[in-house]
Design a protein around this nucleic acid. Sequence first.
DNA 1: GTGGTCTAGACCACC
DNA 2: GTGGTCTAGACCACT
Lengths: 129, 129, 129, 129
Amino acid sequence: MFEIDPRSATPIYEQIIKKMKELCIKGVLKPGDKLPSVREMSSMIIANPNTVSKAYKELEREGLIETMRGRGTFVSKMVQKKLDEEKIEIIKEELRQIMIDAFYAGISFEQIYQWMKDMNNEFANAFHK
Amino acid sequence: MFEIDPRSATPIYEQIIKKMKELCIKGVLKPGDKLPSVREMSSMIIANPNTVSKAYKELEREGLIETMRGRGTFVSKMVQKKLDEEKIEIIKEELRQIMIDAFYAGISFEQIYQWMKDMNNEFANAFHK
Amino acid sequence: MFEIDPRSATPIYEQIIKKMKELCIKGVLKPGDKLPSVREMSSMIIANPNTVSKAYKELEREGLIETMRGRGTFVSKMVQKKLDEEKIEIIKEELRQIMIDAFYAGISFEQIYQWMKDMNNEFANAFHK
Amino acid sequence: MFEIDPRSATPIYEQIIKKMKELCIKGVLKPGDKLPSVREMSSMIIANPNTVSKAYKELEREGLIETMRGRGTFVSKMVQKKLDEEKIEIIKEELRQIMIDAFYAGISFEQIYQWMKDMNNEFANAFHK
DNA sequence: GTGGTCTAGACCACC
DNA sequence: GTGGTCTAGACCACT
């Protein structure tokens, strides 16, 4: 369920953030659910508590999770999808880069579109609710 | 034409690589075209020559450009789109991450698809040739 | 009337203290009024009794409330405004910090002054008696 | 010029942030100026590099400073005072709390207003430009 | 040289 | 029990 690759080029804390977002969007983690404590998680994935803490703080800053002092960390009830112009521009640029990489890797336009549809399915059709 | 952002989180040498690929796919740079020399480029974008050199070497390794000793660096004639399973898997993972980020940024599925089509247009319909 | 935010970065016991002071200065709580017991309050705001107790003790130490053994806790009759040099210096530093934050948040000097006047009104003109 | 109190209740990294903002608003640090490197600063104030780094990152997130990879950290040229509703509400609440504390400390309304004007002077009249 | 990431281990406040 | 802060020291990528 929670796999982290310590050898990967992407930092561990980022892997945690990504995994968490994925679990939330897939509905595995629901609003109000308690997350493993920093120490629990750090021993689960064999990482330093500070590293987990860093991931949790970033997720909190983004509004996906909330920490209740002395009680633990929970999935937020209100995930307000705020339209941040700057953020949108960044995502668009990332998409452009992927399209370029995909082209050079010989991936077809249709293949990408198919992947997108598959992913939306995986995400419990999050995009069409 | 060649904008680099020294403040960006993505390394300068990577920005150069990306920009190069984009110019190639858009048709601004055509096979056989001569690239600015490392020194020219480094003074153009105000970067360390080593940084530019690193980008050129990586582009050469990927087969997009070729260095002719004593004559300069040129866009390759044959850009072989090699189907590298590993590379494809990486791109798919990146796409998944973009889909997740897009969801939380409030971007719609249709918006993403529209962007993709626009980009293909920008890229001289590279995907449908 | 008595809202506590368990998600806030400021500790719950501190939130209670602040809220109490606010209710006193606004005249909602008057000298001699009985406060909810620790247990009542803790169930009202869904907090640990120890947390409420800590807040009450601090308020008593500051002289705002008094505990009558066996009878309960009451708002003090004499709130002596003691001029503590150290305390004043702290408040001045806090004000300086707010001014800096306000500047970077794009808040105008006049806006701050207006807020101050509004708050004095809220506080039953406590400052001008 | 850069005094940090390791015994203070406010975390060192926060003290750095506050000091930095103050130096910027006072004009001691000007847009484009280079900041001491993380290591320099950490030895200057006798703190751990990680602690300084944390402060720098937060300042960067807030847009006051920018880091140029491998070159160092600089005061931003564009300090866009973005009107963040949430942030403004927080500042207003902090101001309310200060007013309450000031009242109980026996500080007069006029005294606070005078302080504000003095501070604006200190800040090179930042509020009235 | 610069900052970014990570670990190990410590102490503290809050609940 | 929880997370927040800090230190010491390490390794790495980028310029």
